[in-house]
Computed example of a mutant assay.
Amino acid sequence: MIRDAATLSQPVSRHVKPVETTIQADLTIADAIRSLRSRKIGQTVVYFYVVDGDNRLVGVVPTRTLLLEEPTRAIRDVMIGAVISINADMTLELALELFAMHRLLALPVVDADGRLLGVVDVQLYADETFDLAESRRRDDLFQLMGVSLEQARHAKAILGFRLRMPWLTANIAGGLICAAIGAAFDDVLAKVVVLSMFIPLVLTLSESISIQSMTMSLQFMHGRDVPWKQVRQRLNREWKTSLLLGVASAIMVSTVALLWVRGGSVAPVGVIGLSIAATMVFAAMEGALVPVLLHAARLDPRLASGPLVLVLADILALTTYLGLGTWWLL
């Protein structure tokens, strides 16, 4: 179990386990399965790593592929070539970062020439063993791993301050930008007071749907590369869902807003309803895209997405709301 920074600085080579389930790249699927069955495998089977004749790591084969692909196909043709691995001289801290970031159950360890030395698995973190098929237990472990890493790194208050203050600074900057936007539209707020009453609600709905979309995008940001096909499908589904949610929310809020303008102009109610529908779509798309763009830039979307998504959602929502109000009502 990780308890201090000294443990994190240990080389990962001290925790390497041998791999009993390697497969030669030049074998067929049928030959690979026969080879695996002939061995006395005593460890938990997590991944099937593929090596060449010099024991260099060249890929990984999913269990599904071994079971369902044609037995005559070559392992080299069906393996996944992009394998996340670590060098033997890297630290335990880096290994645990990769576990938490990519939600992997094991990491292959290679030498300077790319030869497979063994694996480290998530049980180097957990004292107890657990069922790898229990997704809830697995998710809890990854979350706890991230918390323990940060606690070990930032045991001192000043280090914790340095870790967390940048994100609070981002929120402060976003708030100041929104204050400036409000000042730029002070004419419409002064003349149509009812608009100012609904600013908190417009921002809350925008923030909520942006965080929902962000959370769903993070679920498939695991590998090294961005799954652009999934991203396109996700965005296509998200704008439709957010439009339905926006329209439903706009109808409910507009109905309540009518009570405040009873006997007066209903134009502000139209601004409120249309703004809610539009900002919820904008915020949902922004929340879905930010993790993708951060991942494409090789930044950790789990660390940076939250503050950035909220700040952008507030700016988009307030600008749309007050801009539409100025255009329509003044």
Rank of each mutant, 00 (worst) to 15 (best):
G270L: 14
G270P: 11
V271I: 12
V271F: 07
I272D: 06
I272E: 07
G273W: 01
G273E: 05
G273R: 01
G273P: 04
L274K: 00
L274P: 03
L274I: 14
L274T: 15
A277S: 15
A277F: 10
A277I: 12
A278G: 06
A278M: 13
T279Y: 07
T279D: 09
M280P: 09
M280F: 08
M280A: 07
V281K: 00
F282T: 09
F282G: 03
F282A: 12
A283T: 13
A283Q: 09
A284N: 03
A284M: 04
M285K: 05
E286R: 02
E286C: 14
A288W: 03
L289C: 09
L289K: 01
V290D: 00
V290M: 10
V290P: 02
P291A: 00
P291M: 00
P291H: 01
L293G: 10
L293R: 09
L294G: 02
A296K: 15
A296L: 13
A296T: 13
A297L: 15
A297F: 14
L299K: 08
L299G: 02
L299W: 05
P301R: 00
P301L: 00
R302S: 12
R302I: 03
L303V: 15
A304H: 11
A304E: 10
A304N: 11
A304S: 13
A304Y: 14
P307L: 02
P307R: 01
L308S: 06
L308R: 01
L308M: 14
L308Y: 06
V309L: 01
V309C: 02
V309S: 01
V309R: 00
V311G: 01
L312Y: 04
A313L: 11
A313W: 06
D314R: 09
D314S: 09
L316W: 06
A317E: 11
A317S: 15
L318C: 05
T319F: 14
T319C: 11
T320V: 14
T320I: 13
T320K: 04
Y321C: 03
Y321D: 01
L322C: 07
L322S: 04
L322V: 09
G323S: 08
G325R: 09
G325L: 11
